[in-house]
């Protein structure tokens, strides 16, 4: 979906006149491949939230997710020459951030505490606390999944990608994705047993 977007200058001034509301991602990618950093910045602003969200769910740490997202975008700029038009920019970024997060997971353990993002839950404080604890248990269970299952669950269940899109991002077969998801889902059910 093309959203209205105004290109921003490095200082964050939103009054820059280069309006790109009517410009498809593909045009911006072609411009960026030609060296246009401003076009690339527009792509970043369009895709920063889903990229960061995947990183946050994969790594469980806001600081690590921000680092991974920034490195993924720098990598994307350097790798633009290899980007093929048969894939969308969004799918390509999902692949980059997922692989980067898997590398981070493989190289060091995440021991930062899970940030409390559930303060907005309305209702009775006791209910809110219980809901927070339930979600935190789920997050911990996702963090404890084997890397490949964690990636599949984050992309499919939390990011809303289809089975086919998930398979494309992970560069595996549809059957492999379904197998990983099945094992991951059942593991989550086990880990959430205390919340039934």
């Amino acid at each position: 979906m093309i959203r209205p977007c105004t290109g921003l200058s490095p200082s964050g001034d939103e009054r820059r006149p280069r309006v790109v509301a009517e410009v498809d991602d593909r045009v911006l990618v072609r411009a960026a491949k030609g060296g246009d950093l401003d076009a690339f910045e527009v792509l970043l602003r369009r895709h920063q939230t889903p990229v960061y969200r995947v990183a946050l769910r994969m790594l469980g740490s806001e600081a690590d997710a921000q680092d991974a997202s920034q490195e993924a975008f720098v990598q994307a700029w350097k790798s633009l020459g290899g980007f093929r038009a048969d894939s969308s920019f969004a799918t390509w970024m999902y692949r980059i951030i997922t692989n980067r997060c898997l590398n981070v997971i493989a190289t060091h353990r995440q021991d930062q505490p899970l940030p409390d993002r559930l303060a907005a839950l309305a209702g009775d404080p006791a209910d809110a606390a219980e809901s927070r604890a339930r979600l935190d248990t789920l997050l911990e269970a996702i963090q404890a999944l084997p890397d490949e299952q964690r990636a599949a669950i984050v992309l499919r269940e939390l990011q809303g990608l289809t089975y086919e899109e998930t398979a494309e991002v992970l560069a595996v077969s549809l059957a492999a994705v379904k197998g990983r998801l099945h094992r991951a889902r059942l593991t989550l059910v086990e880990r959430m047993a205390g919340w039934q």
Binding site: L44, Q48, T49, F73, L135
Partner: peptide
Amino acid sequence: SVHHTVGTLAAEPVTAPPGLVRGVMH
């Protein structure tokens, strides 16, 4: 029950931190 909790987590709003894009472009 688990599917419902997963859905709640999926619906939780997440926004990229301010300065992420600025840091990359710098």
